[in-house]
Amino acid sequence: MTLQDLGYSNLLEQFKIEQNLDSLEIGRVISEHKERYVVKTPKTEFDAELLGNLRFTAESRYDLPAVGDWVAFSEYDNNKAIIHAVYPRISIMERQAVGKKGQIQIIATNIDFGLIVQAVDRDFNINRLERYLTICNASKVEPIIVLSKIDLLGESDLENIIHQIKQRIKDVTILTVSNQIAEGYDNLNQIIKKGKTYCLLGSSGVGKSTLLNSISGKSLMKTGHISTSVNKGRHVTSHRELVVMENGGILIDNPGMREVGISDLSDGLEITFETILEYTQNCKFKDCTHTQEKGCAVLEAVENGNIDSNSYANFQKIEREKLHFESSVLEKKKKDKSFGKLVKQVKKQRKQNKY
């Protein structure tokens, strides 16, 4: 194995030279556990922690390593390591942190393709597909839709689902697979390219870990038993993990996402809902909210069927979430600024009291 097999590029090599990092080793973060990281090199793996200065100077989550990152590190004592720096990222896939107002959660970094896995049985939900697409498009990650558990549907029902997707989602590759009858994996394997990184996205129980095992040809991830009542596997992936495949591809498995919270993803919305946004240019008013105004080209297109009404409703919902996230971020910044001023005042008062 070489660094290139892990996804190393000429841009990363250039950064290493420019920042004088030649004296440090380089590796890729394959898992993260509460500020402890596993860093993989072509030869081995290291249990790594952050250099104190890197931790204390970090201004936000973006300054700290995440799964998929390239890092500069120094080795000490039996595969232990200290991370000194994080290399620039080509992409950051993120969502709104669950239960944390105005905060983001990094799903993974340096991703080339997002494999959006949805089971065609009870889990199937086009609105959720559009949410994952928005995250991929905002991150400049190419999305690929993978429909799993196709053995649970008849051929006509499966064709109907694919037709529904194509009506609302344009120019995105759709693949179908079955873990039970081992169907569709030849097509999936053909899209896996050496040195490229693929991130598995989807809810719990849709078969992401089983899919990963099937692609690799060996049991890399534990899988849960299938429930006969709901046809869903028990969710077993508890953390993000990067795996290098025998065919040269690099996959990141993710815990199932019960919530796909939207953060500041303006570019992603514009790409995912391009058809809707094209109509906004013909609205009578520039500040049209596309909710009730007379002369709104979007509402007119929804009424005459040129825009899918369900897709429009999903767009409105995601747009509201984005705006709410942005206002939460501003509110948090104001609170942090006020707290900072208070700390300065207390320090100043204490200093005056000494004299």
Rank of each mutant, 00 (worst) to 15 (best):
N247G: 12
S219M: 14
V260N: 07
C199T: 05
V260E: 06
S209H: 01
M221W: 10
S216E: 06
K218L: 05
S238M: 08
L212R: 04
G248M: 00
I250G: 04
I252F: 02
L201G: 10
G256T: 00
R258Q: 12
G261N: 03
H239I: 05
P255N: 07
I250S: 02
V230Q: 13
V206F: 03
E259F: 02
L251V: 09
S216C: 06
H235M: 04
S214C: 11
G249L: 02
V243T: 12
R258L: 09
L242E: 05
E259P: 00
L220G: 04
G202N: 13
G261Q: 04
L212T: 02
M257C: 09
T237F: 05
I226K: 07
G233F: 03
L200F: 11
E246S: 12
G217C: 03
S204P: 11
G202L: 13
T223I: 10
S229W: 14
M221L: 10
V244F: 02
S219R: 15
N254C: 02
M221R: 07
H225F: 14
G248H: 00
G248D: 00
L212C: 06
G202W: 15
I226F: 11
L201S: 08
D253E: 10
G233I: 02
N247Q: 12
E259S: 03
N231Y: 13
S229M: 15
V206W: 08
S209N: 00
T228E: 12
S229C: 15
S209Q: 01
K232G: 12
R240W: 10
L220C: 06
P255S: 05
E246A: 11
T237V: 02
T228H: 10
V236G: 11
G202Y: 15
V260F: 09
M245L: 14
D253V: 01
L242C: 03
G233V: 01
T210W: 02
S204M: 02
R240Y: 13
S219W: 14
I215L: 03
S214E: 15
G202V: 13
G205Y: 07
V243D: 10
D253F: 08
H225M: 14
K222F: 11
R258M: 09
H225I: 14
R234Y: 11
V236R: 11
S229L: 15
S229Y: 15
K232R: 15
G248C: 00
N247V: 12
S214Y: 09
G233M: 00
S216I: 04
P255R: 05
K232F: 14
